[in-house]
């Protein structure tokens, strides 16, 4: 028998197996569960979960509300984050990245604790008992704002200042320079920020549960309920497939299929 020869390429075998076993197969299982149903212990192929989802008024309204919450949260994040990123990127302060750091620092602190802290604050100012929707939106913005600030700052910071000077020299006033030059050039950051915020604000049910006293059900929560409360894993899987479709469509629409999450999640911190 030939002696085993070590080569660098072989180092990807364990990771390849790991991905096959714990990423690919589990995703196929979701697909399998979504299109099967169980009757008397027997599994059979079925569209009943799919039909069941789209004929259920409750599920459809959850879907619609979830999307609405995600759109509003994303828009609010963008409206708040853009001025901040713009001011920071333009600041003449020598250590700009320290300023940036102060704004995005909380994203590395356990989010359950931060959201619970926000809950205490909302309770204190009397919003907790009454304003479920408002609180959920505040929570989503609170949790995901750094994920919007970071990509916006990165793109705004990279814009070549001479473009802006050229635009001004050619007679553009400050407003036109912004709308015709700065903003279009910052679009990659806007898109990457949107993809970073939209999906989690449809699925992160810890935020909505904690801040709405478990009164608001978003899509992520619905999946959780079908697995933990109703014990109907087939429907839970189908809702996951529908969620994946929505993610896929938003990414297709925004062209956000890039590995920008690493950047936003902050490898440039450590």
């Amino acid at each position: 028998m030939q002696r085993f020869h070590f080569s660098r390429k072989q180092l990807c075998i364990p990771y390849g197996l790991f991905l096959a076993l714990f990423v690919v197969i589990p995703m196929l299982l979701i697909l399998f569960y979504a299109f099967t149903k169980e009757t008397d212990g027997n599994l059979s192929f079925s569209f009943s979960n799919f039909i069941g989802f789209f004929t259920s008024r409750a599920k459809l309204s959850t879907l619609l509300m979830s999307i609405t919450i995600a759109i509003i949260s994303t828009a609010l994040c963008l409206l708040i984050a853009y001025p901040i990123a713009y001011i920071l990127a333009r600041s003449s302060f020598r250590k700009k990245n320290v300023l940036l750091m102060i704004f995005i620092l909380p994203m590395w602190i356990n989010f359950v604790l931060r959201i619970t802290a926000l809950r205490e604050l909302l309770d204190l100012i009397g919003l907790l008992e009454s304003q479920n929707y408002l609180n959920t939106l505040i929570g989503m913005v609170y949790d995901f704002l750094p994920f919007m600030i970071l990509p916006l700052y990165t793109t705004l910071e990279k814009i070549d200042k001479s473009y802006l000077e050229a635009a001004a020299d050619l007679g553009g006033n400050k407003f036109t320079v912004f709308t015709k030059v700065t903003f279009p050039l910052s679009m990659p950051g806007v898109i990457s920020g949107i993809t970073m915020v939209f999906m989690p604000s449809m699925t992160n049910y810890v935020v909505s549960d904690t801040l709405s006293n478990f009164n608001i059900t978003i899509l992520g929560k619905l999946i959780d309920e079908y697995f933990t409360t109703y014990d109907n894993w087939h429907m839970g899987s189908m809702i996951s497939i529908i969620l994946l479709l929505i993610i896929f469509l938003t990414m297709l629409a925004t062209g956000g299929f890039k590995d920008n999450e690493k950047e936003a999640r902050g490898t440039n911190l450590w």
Binding site: P26, M27, L29, I30, M199, P200, M202, T203, N204, Y205, G220, I223, D224, F227, W233, G236, S237, S240, L243, L244, I247
Partner: peptide, 9 residues
């Protein structure tokens, strides 16, 4: 992927 989908998978 959404974390909930990874989790249930």
């Amino acid at each position: 992927n959404a974390e909930i989908v990874t989790a249930i998978s």
